[in-house]
Amino acid sequence: MAKILEIENLQTQFFTSAGTVRAVDGITYTVNRGETVAIVGESGCGKSVSALSILRLIPDPPGRVVGGSIRFMGMDILALSDAEIRKVRGRRIAMVFQEPMTSLNPVLTIGRQLTETLEHHLGMAREAANARAAELLGMVGISDPERRLTQYPHHLSGGMRQRVMIAMALSCEPELIIADEPTTALDVTIQAQILELMRDLTKRLGVALIIITHNLGVVARYADRVNVMYAGKIIEQGSALQIYHQPSHPYTLGLLKSVPRLDQPRKEKLDPIQGQPPDLTRLGAGCAFRPRCRYAVERCANEIPALEPVSEGHTSACWQKDSLDQPLRDAS
């Protein structure tokens, strides 16, 4: 399959008065045409920053991409001029943000917010852009699209607004959509609808999707491949199936175990990961997960483990990954 996005050793840092925050610390992954890749991790692990880095949307100052490369369809994103990156944004790589309540401009109509991209990137006339905008709203399942075009974001519910955001992302038929926690702010029932919609549309239109989430349920149902992030690094990569059935990093295992399950006895306590994620301004020499890891050995304190293969297409960054195999199986 053709790779459309190749990220290599990407490093994004924020220079704050409290010190340098290594938000993204050398991540490498690829996205193939039309596939859905998930980036999973808890809050503050750098998953949103990694996504914003792809479109160079990191506010500078304080943040900056300090190393690595991002290649999209053969283009070196980090080397593009401002004018060139603007032609990629919204046109070839589109974004859906987390908060549909604040991500739409409150003083512009839905129609205007949809048509401006069409006019800007595709050079459509107002009339044609309006017709296309109505068509897009219909496509994302919004009823009475003509009327909606004249309405403002505050007339719409959260789910509807997120549909508008998706319509906006799809409008110029991009090759890649990055969805940064697209359902976090929505009700559970709406979450499923939105995710279904995104999956159907991306599959139908052959658009690749990077979905950023902390919700493992989302990953299991919608992603082809999964990157698990912790403290700015990818600590496990593999297909959704591999990650679920053979988690090879104690952190992934912990995440899976902390999901409440309907098929377990109800009185059983959840098994959360103990401790807090580390301070990204002062990462030590060893594995960042070590203080919270129940499998840590001495080596973990001194050397940072690299991603190494567990099986075909499945890698993990853990010194103990082979010896973990057995206890992990027991635990799951």
Binding site: V88, R89, G90, E116, H120, H121
Partner: peptide
Amino acid sequence: RTARAKGLL
């Protein structure tokens, strides 16, 4: 940020 992500001038 959304407007920026749309590639507007």
